[in-house]
Structure formats: structure tokens, C-alpha cells
């Protein structure tokens, strides 16, 4: 919403409420490549600012969704980003692709987003930073041995699986018998 306010000797339009998109991201603006060609590492750094829409504390790079970033000046567009879906039917896959494309555009890069299936995504690809961020949000990151699973709230090992599927396809629902709190577990695949 824009409104006129006095500004020195004249009037000026200002935004009373800056329009925001609730689930969109404009973090691409924090890094700006307008007018220059960035290094591949810088593009990775930018993509690491794009959050996963369902677990926004984790970036699409942390999750292992971004597989490759390539620069080929002779091609149009010059950049290509390879992504892979976590689960075949993940409803966020298309949204993630458009978020990545948009973040790059805002930073000044036109890129082709290509979905690759092989090798198949595995939960072992989640970065250490991503695992820590999950745990900080009370989502238990994937473990090899389900018997080693502990409650993110109180640390008790007395936990029980309530449902093999939780709030999203990639999570299962657990309850802790010690503190009686429910929590999400990011499934191992």
C-alpha cells in the first residue's frame, strides 16, 4: 500500500506496508552479480540461501537437492543448475525449481534448471550444517540405526513411532514417552 507523505518541500510516495511474499524468497538479493560473471562457488553460496519450502531452516544445498552448477559461456542461458527431487512425488519439487530460478534471476543470472534422477537422492546427502539446523528445529535428522533415535526435546531414548509418514512425505511422526512431546523424524532413504 502506497501513500503520499510530506518530504522536505514536496510530497513523496512511500510504502506503508512493504509487500512481502509469505513463502517466497528474495534472498537472492543479498548477493548481486549484476554486471559481472560470478565464480561457480559464488553461485553455490547464493543457492545455499534458498530455503527448502517445507523445512525452511535448511537450504536446498544443505538438503542435497542441488547436484551441480555449471557455467558454459557459449550456451544460452550460460548457467545450468541440476537438481534432484528428494521423493518422486514431493509436491514441492516444482516450487523449489522456480525458487532457485528466481533467486538466480534476482542476483542477475539466467539459468536453466534441469531435473536429474540419477543417482537417486539419498538422505545421507544432507550436510552437517543442514543436520544441525534440523535438530535445532526439533526435527531429528536421518539416523542409520533407528534404535539410536533420541527425543530432540529431552534426549530420552524412550521414543515410539506413531506413524511412518509425518507432516511431509520425507518425515515420520514420533512421540517421546519420557516428556510426552511429539516430534518429526526425517526418514532415512
Amino acid at each position: 500500500m502506497r501513500t503520499l507523505v510530506p518530504f522536505g518541500n514536496s510530497m513523496k510516495h512511500i510504502d506503508l506496508f512493504t509487500p512481502i511474499e509469505l513463502i517466497g524468497t528474495d534472498r537472492g538479493r543479498e548477493i548481486d552479480f549484476h554486471g559481472r560473471t560470478p565464480a561457480v562457488d559464488e553461485v553455490w553460496e547464493l543457492l545455499d540461501l534458498v530455503p527448502d519450502p517445507e523445512i525452511p531452516v535448511v537450504s536446498v544445498v544443505d538438503l542435497g537437492i542441488v547436484r551441480d552448477v555449471r557455467h558454459a559461456p557459449e550456451q544460452q542461458p550460460e548457467w545450468q543448475v541440476d537438481i534432484t527431487p528428494t521423493y518422486s512425488g514431493c509436491p514441492a519439487t516444482d516450487f523449489i525449481a522456480s525458487e532457485i530460478e528466481r533467486a538466480l534471476q534476482r542476483a542477475g543470472i539466467a539459468a536453466k534448471i534441469k531435473t536429474v534422477l540419477a543417482p537417486a537422492w539419498s538422505s545421507t546427502w544432507i550436510s552437517a550444517k543442514g543436520r544441525k539446523a534440523m535438530l535445532d528445529s526439533n526435527i531429528v535428522p536421518p539416523v542409520h540405526d533407528l534404535n539410536s533415535l533420541t527425543c530432540p526435546h529431552c534426549g530420552s531414548g524412550d521414543v515410539h513411532m506413531k506413524n511412518q509418514f509425518g507432516s511431509t512425505a520425507c518425515k515420520a511422526l514420533y512421540t517421546c514417552h519420557a516428556c510426552a512431546e511429539p516430534f518429526d523424524y526425517f526418514k532415512t532413504i
Partner: peptide, 14 residues
């Protein structure tokens, strides 16, 4: 219900 729908989602993705 959540489990059945998530299983369905996997199948549609495949």
C-alpha cells in the same frame, strides 16, 4: 490417512 496419502503421492511421482 496421512500414510495412505503419502504412499499415493510416492506412486504418483513414480
Amino acid at each position: 490417512e496421512t500414510a495412505l496419502m503419502n504412499t499415493s503421492l510416492d506412486l504418483f511421482g513414480q
